[in-house]
Write a protein that binds this DNA or RNA. Sequence first.
DNA 1: CAGTTCAGTTGTACTATGCAACCGGAGCAG
DNA 2: CTGCTCCGGTTGCATAGTACAACTGAACTG
Lengths: 161, 161
Amino acid sequence: MSAAERPDGSGAVSRGAAGEAAVETIQREMTIFARRARASAGRMHPELSLVSYTLLGHLEESGGCRATDLAAHYALDKSTVSRQVAALERAALIERRVDPDDHRVQVLHLTGAGRRILAQVTESRRAAFRERLADWPEDDLERFAAYLTRYNDWPRPPEDA
Amino acid sequence: MSAAERPDGSGAVSRGAAGEAAVETIQREMTIFARRARASAGRMHPELSLVSYTLLGHLEESGGCRATDLAAHYALDKSTVSRQVAALERAALIERRVDPDDHRVQVLHLTGAGRRILAQVTESRRAAFRERLADWPEDDLERFAAYLTRYNDWPRPPEDA
DNA sequence: CAGTTCAGTTGTACTATGCAACCGGAGCAG
DNA sequence: CTGCTCCGGTTGCATAGTACAACTGAACTG
């Protein structure tokens, strides 16, 4: 049962042998990437771990949010976020502002230093990517970017039928 | 200095705005993927963490090797590998055979159970990837696979000129 | 006002990891 | 053979990141 064993009308196309091989390759390469990413996640930058970087990035995009939002968005425990936030605050990269409307809430904001470090790390990462992708034709870059986006855009929000 | 500031003849193409945006997207999506992979690496499978899975896979491919080889290949500390190996042995997924030629060396081999679990985890991962990629056209799968392979194939071996 | 809900913190435990120190066999020089 | 060194592997720390559970204090609800 190599290919057309999908009688489920799920909208899926049947896979030929080539498609199966491609899925296999994607799995393997994603695994390799995940392992490497894991290995370098801590030492991504002397200042910022991958998680901290992500949290800071979220604060930048959102223009400030609550720790609980971060936890929910990234499927982290609130205690984990609490400690990460504490560390980032200790490093003066973020600050907490108690929400005047709800004293339980602490809205997190990037500080100037936080914005600076975030930009710096982003730039250093961007440079690394740019170098790594330096000899890719522009067409391939755009297709690869689209594929990655599509890959990550899953599971799609359960588009309530 | 947005684009054609690369007077270095490095073989790199100059990037237009679209190419820059694509690099940016690739960076962002790879970061997202890395974060998710990190989050699920431990609970990838009740039996096997991502690292254990990788080590088992290497043993399968290589048909047995030393712990030091694993450490070198995956840039892990030998102590880390030692402990992982100990756990895998405890779980009876691998066995050690002292090299008769060099009593310092323990050649690691998959056991039957190890092979079975590895195959099972591989299959379960493959099924997950298949589902995730179910509605991708075959052409896109193949291109995506090729892009990922190319991406991971870096830095290339220092092709001694 | 009392009970409940919610944001966040803290205590505890566990896993993964690295570094450094160590152990024991192997190989080599004399 | 003896002694030194090299090397594979283990073990003792220390650290980071995480989760779970219990707790604190504020806010909402009836």
